[in-house]
Design a binder for these strands. Structure first.
Ligand code: FES
Ligand code: FES
Lengths: 150, 150
DNA sequence: TGGAAACCGGACCAAAATGGTACTGTTTTC
DNA sequence: GAAAACAGTACCATTTTGGTCCGGTTTCCA
């Protein structure tokens, strides 16, 4: 389905919740409550996001999480990468040489090309735009050209 | 990793192999041999691609497969959709209403936006372009045009 | 008329990824 | 020192994926 993991989807929800309170340090329980997600799940997500440097964590009583950067400086690509690793549609397009078919298959170049384009799209969508809830087209005004597919 | 299935990757290889012989009807064995893939796997791929209307199949002796459309009219999006279904990064972006969190999460709009953009990218890459991107024609020297019964 | 080539449609299974949870430790505040 | 809250990790159930196989059907050719 060319889909992103459900955890990644939830991560965007969590990030928007945090971004709604830019001045506060929110506990996992608060975030889970606002995001309507299970607490252990949110906990896992926050750990990943913290590891990627997208959120700042504070331990101890009254601890919690806060955005490490303003929402304008956090892109959807950052979140996706935090959850799913480097962006690349195929394994061959991430690390060449891993595939013995690389020599004559020749499609890896095309995959790399589209991977780069998609990376640009994801990088053009910022958390601030997601917060606005009414985001314009990310990079290019790519409305669906023709849905007429057999 | 925001990756496409490995089968989808193989499908592009298979499609380029078929597109290299626009005038011939290639058997599954021939395609598998040129693509350096296992025959049962290629068989499954061809079935899927045939269902999607991307290749034409001919039964019986000397049967095989052929592109149903010129390579210029087949896009990467067509191949991806044939293997993985409709393009959409999240489940919510494909069918709204499946998610009880849809009301207040608000990120589904953003996901739909980027999904549309990615769909445009994939639709802009044609099989002909993928063919052109190849470094060189691999094993085209073996001119076994019609009915390689041998 | 018979056999062989080749596709068709499934079912089937093993392996891997995913989603989700739980537990124990460590840090900080009061 | 007790409680709050994050850190790390380990674990398991479920789903998805990858890959294979089999019987059936169609077509061509001798
Ligand atoms: S390089 Fe790996 S399949 Fe093309
Ligand atoms: S609509 Fe499903 S998580 Fe946002």
């Amino acid at each position: 389905m060319l889909r992103v993991s459900r955890l990644t989807d939830y991560a965007t929800v969590v990030m928007t919740v945090i971004a709604t309170h830019p001045a506060d340090v929110l506990s996992t329980a608060q975030i889970a409550d606002e995001a309507r997600l299970e607490l252990p799940t949110v906990s896992k997500l926050l750990k990943l996001l913290g590891h990627a440097g997208l959120v700042e964590s504070f331990r101890g009583v009254n601890g919690g999480y806060r955005l490490a950067r303003p929402a304008e400086a956090i892109s959807l690509a950052d979140i996706v990468e935090a959850l799913e690793g480097p962006i690349g549609l195929t394994e061959c397009s991430i690390a060449q040489g891993h595939c013995d078919r690389h020599a004559q298959c020749g499609v890896s170049g095309s995959w790399q090309s589209v991977s780069g384009a998609i990376d640009g799209v994801l990088r053009g969508m910022t958390l601030a735009q997601m917060l606005a809830g009414r985001p314009a087209a990310p990079a290019k005004g790519a409305a669906n050209p023709a849905q007429a597919n057999a």
